[in-house]
Nucleic acid binder design. Structure first.
Length: 205
DNA sequence: GGTAGGATGGGCT
DNA sequence: GCCCATCCTACCC
């Protein structure tokens, strides 16, 4: 899809979109358009990390040098480094100080596919270029340099279609965590080829 | 089709 | 010093 069509048919999500219940925002980010510089894709997989007693969330241990972004105002990016080589993109949600965040786990490429392919030469298909949180940041060129940036304006934003196509949401436990591993806080667009993991990992209804 | 293991570094106790 | 919100390769059905 060309950029002219994307910008004409969509609008940047305002801060009020993010300033709501964490699960609600995690569900509603599905189908939206993640944009970073010259790359865009449809968000097809998210996970909710709650404030308060969700021990899987980085915010569970309170405010530290790393987590201060999560306790800041909603609509900002939280990018962290994990396993010595990967970076993961989140958006801060809920009222300031509540510690909620949404991990963006996968997107279906819409524009800038050539650039994504250069960044991820080992990808097996276009659909899998940004499938998985580490693959997504690599394909989109998102790094810790984007930690804390305002996602309601600038190079990193999320856009909403003026007319959003319908889709079915499936809910599963979150991937790769030990604490609170059973909570149903992962949301995917059913049947989408860019969702990470196999059929089993995508989960039943 | 499936899984086991290693790479690699920052955050926090 | 241990724990990670991961990914890729090799290898085995």
């Amino acid at each position: 899809m060309d950029w002219r069509e994307i910008t004409a048919r969509s609008r940047i999500l305002p801060r009020a979109f993010y300033d709501r219940d964490t699960v609600t925002v995690a569900r509603e980010l599905l189908g939206k358009i993640l944009v970073h510089e010259r790359v865009a894709g449809t968000i097809v997989e998210t996970e909710a990390y709650l404030g308060g007693d969700d021990l899987a969330s980085h915010s569970a241990r309170g405010i530290t040098k790393r987590t201060r972004i999560i306790f800041g105002p909603p609509g900002h990016a939280y990018v962290y480094f994990i396993y010595g080589m990967h970076e993961c993109l989140n958006f801060v949600v809920g009222p300031e100080g509540t510690g909620g965040a949404i991990l963006i786990r996968a997107a279906e490429p819409l524009a800038g596919v050539r650039l994504m392919q250069q960044r991820r030469p080992s990808a097996h298909s276009v659909a899998k270029l940004a499938s998985g949180p580490g693959n997504l940041t690599l394909a989109f060129g998102v790094t810790r340099a984007q930690n804390g940036v305002d996602a309601t304006r600038g190079a990193l934003v999320v856009r909403k279609w003026l007319k959003e196509p319908p889709f079915e949401i499936r809910v599963t436990p979150r991937i790769g965590i030990r604490q609170c591993a059973d909570l149903p806080l992962r949301f995917v667009i059913a049947g989408n080829p860019s969702v990470s993991g196999g059929v089993v990992a995508q989960g039943a209804k």
